[in-house]
Amino acid sequence: MTEPSKTESTVDQLKPMPDDWQRALAVVAHPDDLEYGCSAAIAAWTDAGREVTYVLATRGEAGIDTLDPAECGPLREREQLASAAVVGVSEVEFLDHRDGVVEYGIALRRDIAAAIRKYRPELVITLNHRDTWGGVGWNTPDHVAVGRATLDAAADAGNRWIFPELADQGLEPWNGVRWVAVAGSATPTHAVDATPGLERAVRSLLEHRTYIEVLTEEDPETYVRGFLIGFAESMGERFGGKPAVAFELFGR
Rank of each mutant, 00 (worst) to 15 (best):
Ser83Tyr: 08
Ala145Trp: 01
Phe250Leu: 12
Tyr54Ser: 08
Glu91Asp: 04
Trp161Phe: 15
Thr140Arg: 06
Phe94Asp: 09
Glu77Arg: 05
Leu25Asn: 06
Ala194Ser: 07
Thr46Phe: 02
Val101Ala: 15
Glu91Gln: 13
Thr195Arg: 14
Arg98Phe: 05
Thr126Ser: 12
Trp21Lys: 02
Thr132Ser: 11
Ser234Cys: 04
Arg59Cys: 04
Val192Leu: 01
Pro121Ile: 01
Ser9Arg: 15
Glu3Ser: 08
Trp174Glu: 08
Val214Lys: 10
Gly226Tyr: 11
Pro69Ser: 00
Ala113Ile: 14
Ala41Lys: 08
Glu8Asn: 14
Leu151Asn: 05
Pro31Cys: 06
Gly197Ser: 00
Arg78His: 06
Gly63Gln: 04
Phe239Asp: 00
Pro196Glu: 08
Met17Gly: 02
Glu221Met: 06
Ser39Arg: 14
Val124Met: 05
Ala43Asp: 12
Pro188Gly: 03
Asp32Ser: 04
His30Asn: 03
Cys38Met: 12
Leu249Thr: 14
Phe163Glu: 11
Arg160Tyr: 13
Arg160Leu: 11
Ala48Leu: 10
Tyr211Gln: 11
Gly230Met: 01
Ala153Trp: 07
Arg117His: 09
Arg209Tyr: 05
Pro121Thr: 01
Arg160Trp: 13
Thr7Lys: 10
Gln169Glu: 14
Asp156Lys: 14
Glu221Ala: 09
Ala82Asn: 15
Gly73Asn: 03
Met17Arg: 09
Thr187Trp: 12
Gly105Asp: 04
Leu108Glu: 15
Ala70Gly: 04
Ala155Lys: 15
Gly49Asp: 04
Glu237Trp: 08
Glu213Arg: 14
Val89Leu: 10
Asp33Asn: 01
Gly60Ile: 07
Ala145Ile: 05
Glu207Leu: 03
Asp99Tyr: 11
Gly240Glu: 01
Arg130Ala: 12
Thr46Cys: 00
Ser185Ile: 15
Thr53His: 13
Thr2Cys: 06
Glu199Ile: 08
Ala43Tyr: 07
Tyr104Ser: 11
Gly63Val: 04
Leu14Met: 09
Asp47Pro: 00
Glu207Cys: 11
Asp68Asn: 12
His129Ser: 15
Ala57Asn: 12
Lys118Thr: 12
